[in-house]
Design a binder for these strands. Structure first.
Lengths: 351, 351
DNA sequence: CTGAAAGCGCTTACAG
DNA sequence: CTGAAAGCGCTTACAG
């Protein structure tokens, strides 16, 4: 606590002070079995008395490892860290990191650029979520030799990934809606990912889901362009859900069911409907996607598609560690199961 | 993609290939203004064609910086990443990191040891939350010269911190309970932090809150040891809340109000009460702490203490960056405001 | 069991 | 405007 510029002791100081070599000091910390117990004891004592800890930066440079994997945040940090579903995935990743003795680095855009962030990310591997991955980013990672696993990415890209069958899941839940007689339907789609490479022929998750809805609609003689069907866009936040209600009504006053691509948006809508004293599902049904814990807490409880966020995180990070350790080379794709959950927010349509 | 061992090109390769020196290559990336535009162009072109990116590990070692701050996870990763309140704080930290162009490193215990994790954490500063910080950990950080800010730490320790006035907030909400006639009260306390240094005289947040409750009780002629008051312990999770109900009833069948130290626990209890068809608040009132978004989504909506999680994260990380940049030296403590929020889950006691 | 020395891949004061 | 060289603080093959 003196005012003299604190200089952390290095391996060199410990060597000098203890009378052993730098090599010995390193061994004392990393491979004590190679030293006499006397040497280890002496070195550790000196280290302790000088308050020495090996500098991780230097250690990592020698070892060519960061002992951390990265989670790449898409553009807007609000939308990410406010989404319980993403947080569930992060929880899964953290668990695996913990058991691998790795840290988890949350990587926001650097100087507003995801690309910049990826260029200098201090990680041994990277997980992305829900991004239409720019080819540029994939290329950088490839050159930097950093493995990548995409969660909810674009199955059409040649990237290791963890997904559910979004097309089929969306088809299935839309069928439940149609089966109950609804025909005036508002679909709340997630915005196209901002970073989708428009040129390439990438099928993003929102697109796949819309295709699933479309297939179900066709089975009932409808289409996405039918005047009874309207489509709105929304960010994946509670607030956007709350604000969406007026749009929904003005677009299509006769709507009887709102189908969203995200529970948190659906919950925002339900919240607003409660405030407006609109009866769910008697007047309006609402359907979500994700099956958050919150979805069974609100009333009416939300009809939705259950997809295992925790497992997605666990699978993705296990896969990533396999790549990091060189256990596998080929592009592995994991498909996890989903399940349609019918609860009270979806009712029969009463003409 | 050839099978030849991929070796990332280094500054040396670019120097050789471009005909300039390593110094020049470094400048081209970091201080192009010091080079002729011709040199910069040539170097960047070569770098690009060879697929070169500066190695962050080497760069950081030279710069003696990690460009990342750490968030230290207490013992159990489940309890942390499942707690929406903590996640809100992390969101606040992420925002500041983003604007500082830093990453956020989530640090789980290393080989089951927080101490080990702290010894080798590759960060420029550290934020902890709700830990009774072992002196050992503070000492390590001090020796490693890594600044620390504690959120919901122990105001009694000499550590920069961000807290609300937990004693007073707890007093205030307990008064609301007592004012409404409740006398048979079950307090659900958070477990003592596992890492509290038992020897020292540290006042943890749970302890402060209990003292606040106690002060309010005394004002109404009660005490913590009164037979009408019972105290239970719980982890800070939804599941623990759900499971708590049977304990609450068996400990004190005549209980009319449950006062918890955490919304997520209170929400678990409310969920269970709904399943059990127990009328809230007519039969039993429930009170939380935090004011999560979820607390206004459930019905009945939860009476609680609002404390600004996002702001706590923002204040703590701003403070941390001030230390990192050497802008301040002294131990700064920030107290953020709280607010008691009365909602339907707290009713009058009807004898 | 122990140590001298090269290497990890950058940055930067200094000299020209 | 450009470069040779020292330095950041470790690890580790090699020799003894």
């Amino acid at each position: 606590m003196n005012d003299i510029k604190k200089k952390r002791p290095t391996i060199k100081d410990i060597a000098k002070e203890s009378g052993y070599s730098k090599t010995a000091v390193s061994f004392a910390f990393n491979e004590p079995s190679r030293l006499s117990s006397e040497a280890v004891k002496k070195i550790l004592e000196t280290a302790n008395s000088l308050g020495y800890f090996p500098n991780p930066l230097a250690r990592n440079l020698s070892l060519q490892k960061h002992f951390s994997i990265g989670f790449l945040l898409p553009q807007n940090i609000n939308h990410t860290m406010n989404n319980p579903y993403i947080l569930k995935v992060i929880e899964g990743i953290s668990k695996v990191c913990e058991s691998e003795n790795y840290t988890l680095t949350i990587i926001p855009p650097l100087r507003s650029s995801i690309e910049e962030a990826v260029k200098s990310a201090a990680v041994d591997g990277l997980i992305t979520m829900g991004m239409g991955l720019e080819n540029k980013i994939v290329e950088i990672l490839d050159k930097r030799n950093i493995p990548l696993v995409a969660i909810d990415g674009n199955p059409s890209q040649n990237i290791p990934s963890v997904n559910i069958d979004d097309e089929r899941a969306s088809h299935d839940i839309m069928c439940e809606v149609l089966k109950r007689g609804h025909r005036n339907i508002t679909i709340v789609s997630l915005s196209e990912d901002l970073f989708t490479d428009k040129i390439s022929n990438i099928k993003t998750v929102p697109l796949l889901r819309r295709q699933g809805y479309e297939r179900a609609l066709k089975e009932y003689g409808l289409s996405l362009t039918d005047e009874r069907i309207s489509i709105l866009l929304s960010e994946c936040t509670f607030e956007d859900g709350v604000n969406l209600y007026s749009q929904i009504i003005s677009q299509q006053p006769s709507v009887s069911c709102v189908v969203t691509m995200s529970d948190i948006v659906a919950i925002g809508i339900l919240y607003k409907l409660r405030v407006e004293k609109i009866d769910v599902p008697a007047t309006l049904s609402v359907v979500g996607f994700d099956n958050l814990l919150e979805s069974k807490l609100i009333s009416p409880r939300l009809t939705t598609v259950d997809q295992p966020g925790l497992d997605k995180g666990i699978f993705a990070s296990n896969l990533l560690f396999d790549y990091i350790k060189g256990k596998i080379e080929n592009t592995t794709r994991i498909e996890v199961p989903y399940k349609v959950i019918i609860r009270e927010s979806l009712g029969e349509f009463n003409a």
